[in-house]
Design a binder for these strands. Structure first.
Lengths: 130, 130
DNA sequence: TTGACATATTCCTGTATGGGTATATGTTAT
DNA sequence: ATAACATATACCCATACAGGAATATGTCAA
């Protein structure tokens, strides 16, 4: 099986840098395709294709204005991504803290006691190691 | 050109659901490959391959323990993802707010005044529309 | 209707997957 | 040295890109 479709979810859609650029660009104002082409310096067909993907995943909204199509980022659709990454937020604080502590007191006192993100499905806790 | 390599950055690496599962699993404790295999119910070679990708992107740390390899999530490497998605945080609040406002007062008073994420490169502002 | 303008879609192609299976590499125990 | 255990790599394959070029679709203007 190849990689999952870019249209399968926000994670896959956003993996492409140009699409992130587009989302940034469309975050505050709705814009016409031509504006994206000019501003991001991409080929028009390329932009249309990227927009197609973003649209399929719900990352952008579209509206017709005469002959133009106005796109705008749908921030809501980015939330899952943000929430998933937030799961690790406190971890990197801890990790930095740990490094600090190790540097200050040169004794090996490890503190391990975070929260939920542990076992996903089976919850089949092996030995343990830290 | 096909899609960018999964090892090109965290965004691409994390696009694969199994890899996110693995990162979740390795978030709190370092674990041996076999434990991941058992817990996530994946084939061993598959897990090794995913770990290879995660390792190349710096999303996990490895350490040898006898014949076992102990992996652990490197939360730091997830930050870029979190920061990018955070850019849109206030937007979805605003969008929800807007919907609310529209529902309450049925007059069309749009408020547009966010922050930076607008033009990426050229800064070629078209008309305006909200 | 015809043409200009704006955007979308189609076709073609090289390539990097991810899964499955088999096998190589590395480490410990006997 | 040999076998068992733990992981990593190598192969093979079907597939979904993403870019480029050409063309189709849709809308407004004259």
């Amino acid at each position: 099986m190849p990689r999952a479709a870019t249209t399968s979810d926000a994670f896959n859609a956003v993996a492409e840098p140009r699409r992130r650029d587009i989302l940034n660009y469309l975050a505050l104002q709705e814009r016409a395709v031509g504006d994206i082409v000019d501003s991001l310096e991409l080929e028009q067909p390329s932009v249309s294709k990227h927009l197609r993907v973003l649209r399929d995943v719900g990352l952008v909204h579209v509206r017709r204005d005469g002959r133009r199509m106005l796109y705008r980022t749908n921030a809501e659709a980015i939330r899952p991504l943000h929430e998933w990454s937030s799961t690790f937020e406190r971890l990197w604080s801890n990790q930095l803290l740990r490094v600090k502590q190790r540097a200050e007191l040169k004794s090996g006192t490890s503190n391990n006691s975070d929260h939920n993100i542990g076992q996903p499905r089976n919850t089949k806790q092996p030995k343990e190691d830290a």
